[in-house]
Nucleic acid binder design. Sequence first.
DNA 1: ATCTTTTCAGTAGCATAATTACAGGAATTC
DNA 2: GAATTCCTGTAATTATGCTACTGAAAAGAT
Lengths: 289, 289
Amino acid sequence: MSAEFMTDAHQNILEIVRVMQDTLRKSDRKVAAVILADPSRFLSATVAETAMIANVSQPTVIRFCAAIGCSGFQDFRLRLAQALALGTPATHSVLLESDGPATVFDKIFDYTITSLDWARNRIDKETLSHAVEMLVAAKGIEFFGFGASGIVAQDAQQKFPLFGIPCGAQTDAHQQIMTASLMGPGQVAVVISNTGSTRSIIEIADLARGTGAKVIGLIGNTSPLMAHCDVTILIETLDNTDVYTPTISRIAALTVIDVLSTAVAMRRDPAQRTRIAAMKQQLRDLRSA
Amino acid sequence: MSAEFMTDAHQNILEIVRVMQDTLRKSDRKVAAVILADPSRFLSATVAETAMIANVSQPTVIRFCAAIGCSGFQDFRLRLAQALALGTPATHSVLLESDGPATVFDKIFDYTITSLDWARNRIDKETLSHAVEMLVAAKGIEFFGFGASGIVAQDAQQKFPLFGIPCGAQTDAHQQIMTASLMGPGQVAVVISNTGSTRSIIEIADLARGTGAKVIGLIGNTSPLMAHCDVTILIETLDNTDVYTPTISRIAALTVIDVLSTAVAMRRDPAQRTRIAAMKQQLRDLRSA
DNA sequence: ATCTTTTCAGTAGCATAATTACAGGAATTC
DNA sequence: GAATTCCTGTAATTATGCTACTGAAAAGAT
């Protein structure tokens, strides 16, 4: 993770303050300390109040803002408000050996929410619409994925039949090949891959396409697989591949699956809804209380 | 949705503006219109600029702020910043028949992020720590779940072995019974259920407990299942059970799984990490680019 | 160790932005 | 049709954020 990333305008300002704390001037550090101690207190504070709380002069507060990369005190307050809106009261997204479960919890939830936000801002809604069109028109759908993406495929396979579209999920290499080569026109293959460069998944895309089926890619990175799909939905996330960093990509992918299944359902015959209601009732009957 | 809820201080300010739009003065409505049209534009705008854009006088802008329940223009900007941090550019969380894919996308991502935030603020970190303790000490782990919770179970089963803990995931009713009754002391069963009242999952919890194994519950609602677990992690979400509302609960549950697996991994022998690094390398080799 | 240079933090003043007081005008009511 | 109420803009006021400058402290050089 590069240095310029840390000063990125979209980075959580509290995170920036925490990281830069040590490199700051002595007086600026006083400001940083009181802010990190109780960030929400400064949402409605003026420069004068902030200066008083930190026991420094007002220009020092302004200089502090400049030092952490804000264009002024106003800008700082704005970014503080945004940071606090995402909930994060002074959490640090990098996991440390010393972190207890509670801290790990805070950091991972922070990270997940931030990443989802990131993915949302980057997705291309036009290709998404294209994908919905294709799925609405599909006679059948097959989902393909390995590992974490296999989980996403299975999840999709659970959701789509609810709306009257027969579909399957293939997570085994051999099953994938068999299923892909037995597809045909009118059917849609959804290939799911975080890296987009796993060799076998590319082969699957080609196989399916060879039968006349359409191929939609749910891919986490700009990658070779994209060229082998009719429509590619890029789901960009903050996934750094450190050992302890959990894979956020599948969360984003699952949310996209929600979007697709919901959008498709809304486009199809409303009669489906009554059938779903009936099914939900049956599920309820399985429960004791 | 009660009236006092709509003017709640924690409510999304854009939502408030949208709802109150019709009840406003004529000039105020002009202000509301330009803000709703492009909210982010006003993050760094002054009163004078806002007034100019809306073609009204500066005091009107101030009066508009007061009308929608803000204590001033500053306060308004702050709340606008928070609203935009959660991304929601004038979306309405309820899905409408007429919504296109792009709108569905916005709404579902909004909803997912908000719900995750909700879950984060409500989870009990002490029981989470308990669960981590139990998992760290476990000789083996079994995950149980049906349907969407089955997906979560499988995901967990993929993650935990990375850190040297043998485990399995059971999503089939018969397999679940067999596996649960063959557990024993030192082992941990993790039962996953959104409702917490599915009859068979309660039986599984009892079966596992009968063998001397510990039972951890990942449950979405206060429910009967809780009484059958040694430790219960309640994951509260905004899940309303409308037909078109996607199940956010599994996303929250997956994130909790991330937390658990990460926290457990950090507590175990660091030697594991080198083994994981080696494994990741092998995975990389499977890729073409 | 002393002088020079550089960095740092505070005082004072300035410019801009938010707010309030007031007054003319439109809409509503009687 | 007159009176009242409610809007909305002009002008003045206040407070807030920001800049220029100066003295002090720290770092470096001779």
